Simulated scan of single mutants.
Amino acid sequence: MDPEQRPIGWWVKRLDTLLDEAVDAVVAGEELTRRHWQVLHSLAEGPVQEPALHTGLGDFRSPGDLAVVVADLIGRGWVVSGHRGVTLTPDGVLAHDRVARSVGRIRRHVADGLSRQEYERTILVLDRMVENVERALGRR
């Protein structure tokens, strides 16, 4: 099929699959997955209450997936869960920073050949499409 004939959904799913594969490949040395990275990165700004963490990462997980990832990160000593929410430990901050360098390389590869304006415009277009579909589904 000619690339211009593929619907937007095909491109979005294909890109997401490739991003999963690429991030999984660069974090595999730490015995992590993309989901681990998403949790670590979400916590890098500071503590997050578990319901907010589930909401923020809801589109990227299957049921029970996030609890398993958080439990694994707790077991590694990278994350703690308490009254302030889920937060990175000092070892977790170091792990985040280490993994962030590898994931940053993937992010740069994704944008290869795109100007900053093209990348920003792509994000705006995808955001508008999400808004349109959410509105059509009665979610906005």
Rank of each mutant, 00 (worst) to 15 (best):
M1L: 11
D2F: 10
D2R: 12
E4L: 13
Q5H: 09
Q5V: 09
P7V: 12
G9R: 07
G9F: 05
W10F: 13
R14F: 11
D16Y: 11
T17M: 11
L19D: 03
D20K: 11
E21M: 04
V23P: 00
A25L: 01
V26W: 04
V26P: 05
V27N: 07
V27A: 06
V27D: 06
A28D: 11
A28W: 02
G29L: 04
G29P: 07
E30L: 09
E30W: 14
L32F: 07
L32N: 00
R34C: 01
R35W: 02
W37L: 05
L40T: 03
L40C: 08
H41P: 00
L43M: 04
A44F: 08
A44Q: 03
A44G: 04
E45S: 14
P51R: 02
T55D: 12
G56P: 01
G56V: 03
P63D: 09
L66H: 00
V68F: 09
V70A: 02
V70M: 04
A71R: 14
D72N: 12
I74S: 08
I74F: 03
I74Q: 15
I74R: 15
I74E: 15
G75I: 04
G75C: 03
H83D: 15
G85M: 06
T89Q: 00
P90V: 08
P90C: 02
V93T: 10
L94E: 14
L94R: 14
L94W: 12
A95W: 00
R98H: 13
R98Q: 12
V99K: 00
R101H: 11
V103P: 01
I106F: 06
I106Y: 01
R107F: 02
R107T: 05
V110I: 14
R116K: 10
Q117P: 01
Y119A: 15
Y119P: 02
Y119L: 15
E120I: 01
R121W: 04
T122G: 07
V125W: 07
L126P: 01
L126Q: 09
D127R: 14
D127N: 09
R128S: 12
R128G: 09
R128L: 11
M129T: 07
E131Q: 15
E134N: 13
R135S: 15
R135W: 10
A136W: 08
A136R: 14
A136H: 09
L137M: 12
G138V: 03
R140C: 06
R140M: 10
